[in-house]
Design a binder for these strands. Structure first.
Lengths: 174, 174
DNA sequence: TCGTGCGTTCAGAATATTCTGAACGTATCT
DNA sequence: AGATACGTTCAGAATATTCTGAACGCACGA
């Protein structure tokens, strides 16, 4: 039993998988990620596929995606031909990297359209105000994401403040 | 031509529709929303369906969803049997209301699983730290959402600060 | 009363997404 | 060389999501 507690791990895997949708990554990918998060040592591709009851092919593709997001890393075992995988420990970074990706693909076109509309001379009151709000919203999210990627520590602290969190946990790490 | 600029409006509609996925609302719903955002006066169901080339049924269901989110309102025209629709002007609120919804459905189970895992006595170092981070992340998002819904103005200002925005726009409104 | 205009519903069609597994490539060992 | 172990790929199957449009109900007016 290499993991904390099999059945609860299972629950986390499922919950994380469902939540993946929230930030736009698919169920399998998120489940693989959760499994690695909840497991101490590195896992081989086959073990992952087996534990999650998904095909090797699916596992392989999911791991690739996680690697391109930079949240999973391959490690090698001494005299073993297989590849093993571990998560980067930083979930926050993962979250924001993925957001940045989606920002590019989805925010930017929307922002462009909004600005184009605002530039039109004929943009009236009601509409103008709403468009501006949309722009503000997108710009704010964008700003937070960018700032986080530049300076994670301070952004995290700032967000904790905004969130009004007790703000104790975390061992410190500067 | 009741709207700012038909073709650019179209672009916004499509961009907003694509972006909808980001916060978990479907393309049609987001497109209807965008159309209302970019249009000065109220629109009838038929007009919406026609402009977006979607069926009346689809339009009806999309509008219902938008109404349950509280971002679209029905208005009546003088001697007209038809229902007309307008957006609430506050996109930010929409955004956070929707987040709250998803939070309920998706965050909460994940947070539960995490806490259950952390409660286990056997939660070791590596894993424990990662789980804690996941919990922090979720708690932070949750906190921001809750605070926004309680006190939008201050939260917006705070977020603008975090985002490092120029922070000028907006007519003021307290 | 019947007819007409309007909105809603929902079964099934259309479409999009995700997943599987067989086929393949490459490396390693005998 | 042949055999084995492993990872990857991708066409098509399986599944999930979204959309349509016919059927219906209701309210109004004639």
């Amino acid at each position: 039993m290499t993991t904390t507690a099999p059945d609860t791990v299972q629950e986390l895997v499922e919950a994380w998988g469902a939540m993946g949708a929230l930030w736009g990554i698919n169920r399998s990918v998120a489940r693989v990620h959760a499994l690695l998060m909840a497991t101490e040592g590195p896992l081989s591709l086959d073990e992952i596929a087996e534990r999650l009851r998904i095909s090797k092919g699916n596992a392989s593709m999911s791991l690739r995606e996680l690697r391109t997001f930079g949240v999973v890393r391959q490690v090698e075992a001494p005299g073993d031909r297989r590849d093993f995988y571990v998560t980067e420990p930083d979930v926050w970074t993962m979250f924001f990297r993925i957001l940045r990706e989606r920002k590019r693909r989805e925010f930017d076109p929307a922002l462009e359209a909004i600005h184009r509309l605002l530039a039109r001379p004929g943009a009236q009151g009601e509409v103008r105000g709403r468009l501006q709000q949309m722009g503000d919203l997108l710009a704010t999210v964008e700003g937070v994401v960018n700032r986080f990627l530049k300076d994670p520590a301070s952004t995290r602290a700032a967000l904790a403040l905004v969130a009004g969190l007790p703000f104790d946990r975390r061992k410190k790490r500067t």
